[in-house]
């Protein structure tokens, strides 16, 4: 634990972009990297090839009795429509997602986080012709490295970016151990426990099931032993001390903020219940 804290801060490669809503709330998007976008592209390429082969088979079967030239001409037009229309129309119609992007969990949005419209979709996808220059999207990948926000030429011209769709489930607070060490709220306040400390304990219990028994004991010891020492209750199971702290802390907090449940702070008052 302490080792992690002593490491020099590392600049993360998967960068985040902050967006402010009209409600003056900042939130973050995580940018999709080159590899995810390349995989999505390859998937879409496969799907495109699939569409072309299936539809052109149908076209040939239904029109070649008239003339073979007609079927060939229709197949060429189909290839054109799929090549230039696939991304443009899908990204426009489905809020910046194509099947390939969906599979990789990425999405195109405006740089202010809003869904793209037709003009932007057309712009970023027509400019693929420039990104692909001179081969294998070299120009696009280079600009992705240099812009720092992972945007290719088409993204720059259309003012769009590709983000990772994050689904982060809200974990339930599992029931605390019933044999917890009861800690008087007064004692807790004397220790100078801050919101942040309670939050850490709260998160420890939310993730308790992810740790092995030994690991949980280890973490609980780091968090709980100093408190136990101050409260002169050494020897108690640190995990049970932590549970006691959380209950006491939430009591304190709800007495501060919690005039009613509706105005209390999420994650705390309810946690105590």
């Amino acid at each position: 634990m302490n080792q992690v804290g002593s490491l020099a801060p590392v600049k993360r490669i998967s960068e985040k972009v902050s967006v402010q809503t009209p409600e003056q709330i900042q939130f973050e998007f995580e940018l999709a990297g080159v590899s995810a976008r390349m995989m999505a592209y390859l998937l879409d390429l496969l799907i495109r090839a699939g569409i072309i082969s299936v539809v052109s088979t149908i076209l040939v079967l239904t029109t070649s009795w008239a003339s073979e030239g007609l079927s060939a001409g229709l197949v060429l037009i189909l290839a054109f429509v799929v090549e230039w229309g696939y991304n443009t129309l899908l990204e426009w119609r489905f809020n910046g997602v194509t099947p390939g992007k969906k599979a990789l969990g990425i999405r195109v949005v405006r740089t202010d986080g809003v869904s793209i419209d037709f003009v932007r979709s057309a712009m970023r996808n027509f400019l693929r012709a420039a990104d692909i220059f001179p081969f294998f999207y070299a120009a696009g990948v280079l600009t992705m490295f240099f812009t720092g926000t992972q945007r290719r030429l088409g993204d720059l011209a259309a003012d769009t970016m590709v983000i990772r769709e994050k689904r982060s489930p809200l974990r339930e607070l599992p029931p605390l151990p019933s044999n917890l060490v009861e800690i008087p709220t007064g004692a807790l306040m004397q220790l100078g426990i801050r919101d942040r400390d309670l939050t850490i304990i709260d998160e420890f219990f939310r993730r308790r099931h992810l740790f092995s028994e030994d690991r949980a004991d280890e973490i609980a010891a780091v968090l709980g032993d100093p408190v136990a020492k101050k409260l002169k209750i050494e020897g108690e199971d640190p995990e049970l001390v932590l549970a006691g702290m959380l209950v006491a802390g939430n009591e304190v907090r709800s007495s501060w903020y919690g005039r009613s449940t509706a105005t209390s702070i999420p994650g705390t008052a309810g946690g105590a219940r």
Binding site: V19, T21, I25, F27, E28, F29, N95, G96, R107, V109, G113, V114, S115, I116, D117, E165, K166, R167, S168, P169, L170, R171, D195, R196, T199, I200, D202, E203, R206, I265, P266, G267, T268
Partner: peptide, 29 residues
């Protein structure tokens, strides 16, 4: 989300709210 940040309610709540606000924001177009 703003409250969760200012009162430091933890990464769990914060990243969860961040994600749904981001999803909601995209719906405005």
């Amino acid at each position: 989300l703003a409250r969760a940040r200012s009162q430091d309610l933890g990464d769990d709540v914060e990243s969860y709210l961040n994600a749904i606000v981001a999803r909601g924001h995209k719906q405005f177009r």
